[in-house]
């Protein structure tokens, strides 16, 4: 068992009160598993991803625990997490295009980052060059400034840097959103190859676009309004989703393999609830065509079949 997250709660402090962006997440990821994390924008995917590596200033740890390879991650302690970052948990951020210091040569920045973490750049450099070859970049990118690279090149470089210390868990947040379709495919394939080469043990691939996960992810976790809705192997999510939200999300997409055309046409009617004062009971209730009396209580996220978890009274039975 590589990653084990239990009842993790992370809120945003605002003047109006706490935004309950991640309100009790319990799930696990196995060794070698690439887990897709999907859901509409604003449902808390990035909050979950960030809380596993670094809480930014406005995020507040409320409760829960994260266990990676048998070690408890002190996610509430910014200093304490430093030791785990990069080596055990790493991230390819949403802003990969601007993640490198614009005024430093890429090689210099990489060297300074590694040395600051007590690693020897000289020892790591051969492997760094090998991986630069692997992602199809020129070795002389190390002597260049980020501005000299195209967006796709920068992204590949950040992918190489982030995984250089062979982290156990890699979080990739919306890394395909800013790219054109052919580049998206290449990036997705690179992610899988990183896992296959053993550069990373397991991975969380965050996206608001489920279709990108079809070729990439082994499993998919669907979130809705700060809560987990369903987790199952990719094939099951596509063909046999049980949660009404997942079903609507999947059917709102065009057929598997056909992206683009009219994608946005058939969305799910209505909009997600405010996370400042989320409704009691099932948070999907206001938009759920199957909602019934029981749904005023909160449905637990439980096993509904082998390797299949869901949080819905219709699935688990109202007397569960």
């Amino acid at each position: 068992m590589s990653l084990q997250v239990s009842d993790l709660k992370v809120y945003y402090r605002t003047l109006a009160g706490d935004v309950k962006a991640l309100d009790g997440a319990t799930f696990s990821i196995a060794d070698k598993e690439i887990m897709g994390l999907a859901g509409e924008s604003g449902c808390g995917k990035s909050t979950l991803g960030n809380s596993l590596i670094r809480l930014d200033g406005r995020m507040r740890y409320v409760g829960g625990s994260v266990n990676l390879d048998g070690n408890e991650l002190p996610v509430w302690d910014n200093q304490g997490m430093n030791e785990f970052r990069f080596r055990d948990v790493s991230v390819i951020p949403q802003y990969a295009m601007s993640a490198m210091n614009p005024t430093r040569k890429i090689g210099t920045m990489t060297a300074e980052l590694l040395e600051s973490r007590g690693e020897k750049y000289r020892e790591i450099k051969p492997e760094l060059l090998r991986r630069i070859d692997l992602v199809g970049l020129d070795r002389d990118v190390l002597g260049r400034y980020p501005i000299e690279l195209s967006g796709g090149m920068k992204q590949r470089m950040v992918m190489v840097i982030s995984t250089l210390l062979d982290p156990s868990l890699l979080i990739a947040d919306e890394i395909t959103s800013a790219l054109d379709v052919s580049t998206q495919r290449a990036v997705a394939e690179t992610l899988v190859s990183f896992r296959d080469h053993g550069f990373v043990k397991s991975m969380i691939v965050i996206t608001h676009d489920v279709s990108i996960l079809y070729q990439t992810a082994d499993t998919i976790l669907i979130m809705y309004a700060g809560k987990l809705a369903e987790k199952a192997p990719t094939k099951t999510i596509i063909e046999g989703a049980m949660h009404p939200y997942t079903k609507m999300l999947i059917s709102s997409l065009p057929e598997v393999g056909v992206r683009y055309a009219n994608k946005k046409l058939s969305g799910i009617p209505g909009s997600p609830p405010s996370l400042l004062r989320p409704p009691v009971g099932c948070r999907f209730r206001a938009r759920c065509p199957l909602a019934f009396d029981k749904c005023v209580e909160e449905p637990p996220f439980v096993k509904v079949a082998r390797d299949h978890m869901a949080a819905c009274w219709k699935v688990t039975g109202s007397d569960a």
Partner: peptide
């Protein structure tokens, strides 16, 4: 607050760097 600073922090770089 720039992206490159956040990236360094996410990778555990010390405040010095």
């Amino acid at each position: 607050d720039a992206d490159y600073s956040r990236y360094l922090e996410a990778l555990g770089a010390p405040q010095r760097l």
